[in-house]
Nucleic acid binder design. Structure first.
Lengths: 123, 123
DNA sequence: AGAACCGTATTATTCGAGTAATACAGTTTA
DNA sequence: TAAACTGTATTACTCGAATAATACGGTTCT
């Protein structure tokens, strides 16, 4: 069963996008594996304190990306293969890296400054 | 005159927040200095293709943080001192670093993986 | 078979971001 | 002095995110 214990809602971006991003990162990190059972829309909405429709929106978009599988009436499961994982891994890592690099360059940091900063806060 | 040439609107977060973040990062990076003249609300709104009220909201919040100064009828100017710069610098850098570290940890990267990734994309 | 789940769909409502169109008073500058 | 700017304020509107309350039909399990 996929766990959302490590998930917390932040503000600044839509909740359904945060859920999608969380699931993708867990798939990349191996916390979520192919075939894992997902919590139902109703259960997860109660757990996170949000509306069932918000969960449905996130699940629906994950299904459209081919990362989970839903059948009317039945439970939903994670459905990924190596190709899908590699694809979203490249997408997310590149996106994160370019974002942080852009921010730090804008603030006048050198490459060495940036590396030192990551090292410092990586407990 | 403060330039917004390097600024582009992304979606995912409110425009006024993006403007505030851009100005702060430029102040930290030295692109924007104390005493610099800011483009007027009307001019910047036309330049970015957004509503004047959106610019006004960003400028107002920057003024409430003590980073710019506005007087009715007159032009607006950047007003920062070393203490203010140091304060927002610490805020932004720590925030950015912790965000990227959290994301990469979630994706199963080691500290070395993360450092290698930054080096790779830092052209 | 029947209860208890499940995914899916619909409609109405709230709320904040952003737009749009003005208006007014103060400053700058020719 | 008068035109052309400036910051500031107000009201009404659109639009998407999220809520809320249901409803329907399929699956699972006892």
């Amino acid at each position: 069963m996929v766990s959302f214990d490590a998930f917390t809602i932040e503000d600044g971006s839509p909740i359904y996008l945060q859920i999608i991003l969380y699931v993708k990162r867990c798939i990349i990190g191996g916390t979520i594996a192919d075939g894992d059972e997902l919590p139902s829309r109703r259960v997860l909405s109660a757990l996170l304190g949000v509306n069932p429709n918000t969960i449905q929106k996130a699940y629906r978009m994950l299904e459209e990306e081919g990362l989970i599988q839903s059948h009317s009436g039945a439970k939903s499961y994670v459905a990924t293969d190596a190709a899908a994982i590699a694809r979203i891994r490249a997408q997310l890592l590149e996106n994160d890296a370019l974002n942080i690099i852009n921010s730090m360059k804008q603030m006048g940091l050198t490459r060495e400054d940036a590396l030192a900063l990551i090292e410092k806060y990586w407990e």
